[in-house]
């Protein structure tokens, strides 16, 4: 038996909107510690890892570990039927081939339930090693989204370079080139407007903008984004989910042949 009650249901709606175009089908894993997901995109270039800790739910019951295969497009269709202020409860019985999403309006005058068919997904679970990253940049998520969108109008790839001067996003395409430098800026009114660069070694890596742009669909989940880079590793683009956990996108770099 599984029953998870999330008062801020909009978080789950936003999570789905941010991953449904990257991943078609995924297993949601439920344990006593939380509700999580790990899935690769169909080209096996990017990986998304989601964690919603049990403490973030108003009610969290998970009698035994469960893995529920869901089509994210279908799940998104159902969650779109929940209001932004609705409380969302996820329910499933042991061994059942369906999951139920229940939506309650804040005033309890409208209660809906949607039952969705589960699917068997033979997904590979990858081990993500703990890593010390050479450069970690935290910046406003809207700024990062703006940069990715702007650069994708000019080129297909972005070179992210971190030096002690700042973080540089560069692209090149048929019409020309673009360089955007964001310098460390901690003298702002609000901490979420700061750009903070923690660099132990300078790093420069090339990534496909198509994926970066897809990751920025999670911008609504957090005011800030953290980009962790090391020369021999996929980049990690992390959006914290208030009080609950995170959504992390891993993207393998492109290298010169």
């Amino acid at each position: 038996m599984l029953e998870l009650r999330l008062v801020q249901g909009s978080l789950l709606k936003k999570v789905l909107e941010s991953i449904k175009d990257l991943v078609n089908d995924a297993n949601f894993d439920c344990s006593s510690s939380g509700f999580s997901l790990q899935a690769m995109d169909s080209s096996h270039v990017a990986l998304v890892a989601l964690l919603l800790r049990s403490e973030g739910f108003e009610h969290y019951r998970c009698d035994r570990n469960m893995s529920m295969g869901m089509n994210l497009g279908n799940m998104s269709k159902m969650l779109r039927c929940a209001g932004n202020d609705d409380i969302i409860t996820i329910k499933a019985d042991d061994g059942s081939d369906t999951v139920t999403f229940m939506f309650e309006s804040p005033t309890q005058d409208k209660i809906s339930d949607f039952e969705m068919k589960l699917m068997d997904i033979d997904s590979e679970h990858l081990g993500i090693p703990e890593a010390e990253y050479q450069s970690i940049v935290t910046m406003p998520s809207a700024e990062f989204a703006r940069i990715c969108k702007d650069l994708s109008g000019i080129g297909d790839t972005v070179v992210i370079s971190v030096t002690k001067e700042g973080v540089k996003f560069s692209t090149r395409g048929d019409i020309g080139t673009a360089n955007i430098v964001c310098r460390q800026n901690t003298t702002v009114d609000k901490p979420e407007e700061a750009t903070v660069i923690n660099m132990s070694e300078p790093v420069s890596l090339t990534f496909a903008l198509r994926y970066m742009n897809s990751f920025t669909k999670a911008t609504t989940l957090s005011n800030t984004v953290t980009i962790s880079l090391s020369s021999e590793l996929p980049v990690v683009v992390e959006y914290k989910i208030a009080e609950m956990g995170y959504i992390r996108f891993y993207l393998a770099p492109k290298i010169e042949e």
Binding site: M40, S43, H44, V45, A46, L47, E124, H125, L126, G127, I128, P129, D156, T157, T206, A208, L233, P234, Y250, L251, A252, P253, K254, I255, E256, E257
Partner: peptide, 14 residues
């Protein structure tokens, strides 16, 4: 252009 690497090159199956 540069070659896209696969994520599975960095993270192995568990």
């Amino acid at each position: 252009g540069p070659k896209q690497l696969a994520i599975t090159r960095f993270f192995s199956k568990v």
